[in-house]
Design a protein around this nucleic acid. Structure first.
Lengths: 212, 212
DNA sequence: ATTATATGAGTGAGTACTCACTCATATAAT
DNA sequence: ATTATATGAGTGAGTACTCACTCATATAAT
């Protein structure tokens, strides 16, 4: 993800202080939710006085929006280049692995945005346009091509891509949900391999695997 | 789901008033989140005085817990009976359809519980034990059997079942997320059919479908 | 049948406390 | 010396929760 925080597209430079406050805010909002968090806590976490927060952000809500606003999906271009010419299996695995890492590295912020998207339509709309639609589009195009080439079944690419994303997401959610819990965890590599296997050899017309 | 609300296993009868307050609470909590909701709003929504709430619930938190506590997954036994002897395809579709309806009918409460599970470990633990584990176990057993019989690939049943659930969940989340949005919706029937198709003919060793 | 007494669900004004935001003052940077 | 930045005590609107009181209904007394 590419974090970059000029409040309203203007002054795009974020000072060190501003960054510190934003990082503290992610922590506190994640832990208590936006409404449950207090500006006093955020200030303490950031190591500044409460008043300082309001020098950088007009309102508490503005802090939240500054976090959610510039949440842009990092390009997959590099990854895609690296696996150019490889089998679908390799390509899809590379994509999933890359996205999963992205999610892992930003899990708090992502969870926060998802949660608060329920209550703030600005965040919801931002997220749908900047993240969901773009990310979905990428996979959709990949799948559309293979359908066109007659390699995949005639399924709606939107449904297929979402199914794949769904399989991946649930493992993140599950893991995150169980944090510090006694229940079983899985090895990421194994999970990705299995997901791709289920996905591909269900959608591929010419099977070359799992034929017994 | 089976809602049944005696606070602590004792007096299991909930008066009409209590029910009214609880229903109002689901609405207000759903819309504003637990912290963002006020007891005044809940009272207004329920059509009672603020004081009345505290005659039935000791604290605001107790209202939330009374909602999340008795959230028990309705048995699938009936559905399973109806499709006894049918193909996997039919059985799995019946299960998914049934669960999907359950979710649809309780979407507000479910979203609420998911959200607040982040902030209240009591809810999180309750949910994991009463819902997640039981629901997952059911599918896992189904899949384990087929693996044992040599009908499915040697995949960890926990991974397989979660993958299936993931595919289903994302469509609910997506739909819920986009509520009143311009983007495309899908037909439930079609989605379920596609999900099962992807799942089954990816996991089944003896293919009989999609062979071109 | 009529009247007196008791009950307890329901009320809403009041209380103690919280929290986002302000502003006069101090400190640091130029 | 002037300007920019930071501070944190202070403010007032709001909030969870309390409690003295009401009043419709049930029960007992006549």
């Amino acid at each position: 993800m590419n974090r970059d925080t000029g409040k309203h597209a203007k002054e795009n430079i974020t000072s060190k202080r501003e960054q510190e406050i934003m990082e503290a805010a992610v922590k506190v909002f994640s832990k208590k939710g936006f409404s449950g968090a207090t500006t006093r806590e955020i200030a303490a976490e950031a190591g500044v006085a409460e008043g300082t927060i309001f020098r950088y952000f007009k309102t508490k809500k503005d802090i939240l929006f500054s976090l959610a606003g510039p949440f842009i999906v990092e390009s997959l271009a590099n990854v895609m280049d690296e696996v150019k010419g490889e089998t679908d299996e390799v390509v899809l695995k590379a994509i999933l692995k890359n996205r999963l890492n992205l999610v892992k590295n930003n899990i708090d912020l992502i969870r926060l945005i998802f949660t608060e998207a329920q209550f703030h339509h600005e965040i919801r709309e931002q997220f749908i346009e900047n993240v969901a639609m773009k990310a979905a589009g990428m996979l959709e195009r990949f799948i559309s091509e293979r359908i066109w080439e007659g390699e995949y079944k005639e399924i709606k690419p939107q449904i297929a891509s979402r199914a794949l994303v769904g399989m991946a997401i649930i493992f993140v959610m599950w893991k995150d949900f169980l944090m510090g819990n006694k229940y079983i965890q899985f090895n990421d590599e194994e999970v990705i391999d299995n997901i791709i296997d289920i996905f591909l050899y269900g959608i591929k017309k010419n099977r070359m695997k799992g034929e017994l």
